[in-house]
Amino acid sequence: MDGTEGLDDGPYRVYHVVCQLIYLHEGPIALHEQGLAGRCNQHILTFRRNLKALLDAGKLRIIDGRLTNDRAETELQLVQDRRSTSAKGGRGSRGVRKGSGRGQGEVEQRSSGDVPDKALNSNGSVSSPLSEQQHHKSRGEESRGEKSREEKKDAAPYGARSGSLDLGEPEPPRSKPPPSDPEAELFRRGREILGDKAGGMISQLLKAKDRNVALARAAIEQASTKENPREFIGRIIRGNEPTTVVQP
């Protein structure tokens, strides 16, 4: 904010849009003047003049025909570093999980084989007498449970096992979830894009589309791609529906 307070409206608009696109594409963007001028809602000559002002001020740079910003590059590099750390399961460059509290000396001892790590090696062949007793106890309980299930199965009537005799109450039919209401989904999605207090605007949009929920939902989704979704929907409500322009 401090670096853009001295910019006029035109250069600030170009700077804002270009930085947004750099973050969106996670890197420098191609210098397509016609497409960028359209996104900035500026004439091509006005866009060129504003872009030159930003280049002269050092706010933007052109490298190999692509626009970039120094601060954006720094932030995107931090994002990449966090992703790389997450991909390693939160482990740093020395293989130690962050926040584990293990000292470097302990890690080096374990890596050299001087100190066995029984807590980390759960598949080791060495076990304590207590663990052996627990193991045999769990195997005994499991065998008794299987025997009890077999006895219950043998004691059950033939019809109950084979399905030839119905001795119990029929299972009540399971209720199906109610189908989703398209209009309710329209209002839910509209509040996500336009704000929590946009119920009145969504009702006006639905009226402008002759109560056609599908058309109103399509307008909401199209507005989600705009820089100012509320302004876009407002133009539709006023009857000044914008045309779709495909940018290069």
Rank of each mutant, 00 (worst) to 15 (best):
K152N: 09
R91H: 06
L120S: 13
H135D: 10
K137P: 03
D117A: 04
E132N: 12
P170V: 09
A72I: 03
G99M: 00
K98Q: 08
N69I: 03
G99C: 01
P116M: 05
R94D: 14
G168V: 09
G101W: 01
G99P: 00
G113R: 05
D114A: 15
P157S: 07
P170M: 08
E169S: 09
D64C: 05
G163N: 04
E142C: 08
A72C: 06
D81C: 02
Y158C: 09
R61W: 05
G140L: 11
R102P: 00
V107A: 08
V107I: 13
N123I: 07
E108V: 14
K98W: 09
D70E: 13
H136G: 07
G159Y: 04
V96P: 00
T74N: 06
G124H: 11
Q133D: 07
V126N: 07
A160C: 03
L76Y: 00
D81R: 06
T85W: 01
N121G: 02
T68E: 06
R83H: 04
P170C: 04
E75I: 13
L120T: 12
S112E: 12
A119M: 07
L167V: 08
R161V: 10
L120M: 10
G168N: 09
K147M: 10
A119G: 08
G103M: 06
S84R: 09
G140T: 13
G95D: 04
R66F: 02
E141L: 14
A156Q: 10
G99Y: 01
G163R: 02
G101F: 01
E132W: 10
R161L: 10
D70R: 12
R161K: 13
K98I: 15
E75M: 10
E142L: 11
Q104K: 15
K88V: 00
G92Y: 00
P172I: 05
S128R: 10
S125R: 15
R161D: 02
K118W: 15
R149P: 00
G105P: 04
G65N: 03
A87C: 02
G90N: 00
S162D: 06
